[in-house]
Design a protein around this nucleic acid. Structure first.
Lengths: 230, 230
DNA sequence: TTTCTGAAAATGTGATCACAAAACAAGTAT
DNA sequence: ATACTTGTTTTGTGATCACATTTTCAGAAA
């Protein structure tokens, strides 16, 4: 049995073992550290996280209920495989959910918050130019999150993150096989629409950003990526 | 400590204790058996379900990750309270998600499946006329589920059910304080649109159904219901 | 009556263990 | 070579227990 390698993740104090395991596994899946079809074991992860089966099993159960993992009938735990149809379904869900969340966040965004969003966008471009794909990916998620969570009563964020998690494994493959990331400048468009407090334009820009970003992979490209993943 | 009463739920054979606990608690929350603000304990539920803390805790963790329960900082487990703003947010999410899911299901529905959906709609009306509110509620959920899950690659259903779960507690209150349910006949409209395979009309009918059904409660009505809930 | 204090009870957490089912490996038969 | 069988190992499951934190509540003090 090969030793499991997880992306590092500092453990905050006062956090329970379960919460730590959940956060770390979730982060790993979100940035594509696991390949589709990979199977994980409770004891294996418990060892990798230097804890025991109980809290790990709880974390895995939570991850399955948000679609990040699948419990098979055999009781095996696997990273879900992605078909081209499922991929298209996930992208269309992202567009619908995130356009909606963005539209409803506009009225709550202060100028100061928009400044912070601009800073995050600059961090994305810096990471891309530096070739740091994982960092760019995380910063990009942060860009979207900052917009949507401006709405204090917002409910959609956990659902959106569920979709992100389900796209995570294919993201990992894409990152390995794409020579370099390119800047999709719909972010600038979204930011300007935010400054104008133009809800429709914000929603449209976010939708286009998704469509032209990860959503821009066509069926062929996805099929190719998936075949590479075995 | 008062004994916990859960709606009955036959236990299928071969199911794990954890799965049974999860399904039963989820069902209870979905049909409004728990009031907002109610707190539950692991040991209490374990006793009610005649099992031990381990599988119950796993079930509770899963329910929290789909928004059906909240782990407070005190580590107390409670049924989330609902504010009018949160309620409105949930309804708008239902509309967006379910219109989308319905639209994308249309192309996959066979005439036979539509017949079954019609039968479910008739069961709803029968339950309403018989005054069986809980049964009407479950049949109504089944009506929606049958439509959305016709799409074999569909991803949205778990997200939609998460929203349903978050609306569950207020549903329970509403059911107690509403003299009788009335038939919102957008279902007929939806069914006819399904027969015509008219995607836009289906999406519109589903959206209107939600808006005029539970979504029809205005802020005042919600505030009143919530005040009744303490 | 109200507020404070401290002991007792309740509760979440996580490690451990026994058990059953599944997966695996190796050897045998066809 | 392939298919089958059997014994071993791995793995998920769930009950139990010890521990730390929180809650509860009775009794004392103001």
């Amino acid at each position: 049995m090969k030793a499991l390698v997880l992306p590092p993740f500092p453990r905050p104090e006062g956090i329970t073992t379960h919460d730590y395991a959940f956060a770390r596994l979730r982060q790993a899946i979100m940035v594509g550290a696991f390949r589709p079809g990979t199977s994980v074991t409770i004891r294996g992860l418990a060892e990798a996280l230097e804890s025991s089966p109980t809290p790990v099993r709880e974390a895995l159960r939570q991850l399955t209920s948000i679609g990040a993992l699948h419990f098979l009938e055999n009781r095996r735990i696997v990273v879900p495989r992605i078909t081209p149809a499922r991929f298209e379904e996930l992208i269309s869900l992202r567009i619908v959910l995130e356009s909606h969340a963005a539209r409803r966040a506009v009225a709550h965004l202060s100028d100061r918050q928009i400044d912070r969003i601009v800073a995050t966008d600059e961090a994305i471009e810096a990471a891309i130019l530096a070739g740091e794909k994982a960092a760019a990916l995380i910063a990009n998620q942060e860009f979207h999150r900052q917009i949507y969570t401006a709405n204090p009563d917002q409910i959609a964020m956990p659902l959106i993150e569920s979709v992100w998690l389900q796209l995570g494994p294919i993201l990992g493959i894409a990152m390995e096989h794409v020579a370099e990331l390119y800047v999709v400048d719909r972010h600038r468009e979204a930011i300007e629409a935010l400054r104008r407090r133009d809800k429709d334009a914000v929603a449209e820009a976010i939708g286009a950003d998704i469509r032209e970003g990860i959503g821009g992979f066509d069926q062929q490209a996805i099929a190719k990526l998936l075949s590479l993943a075995g």
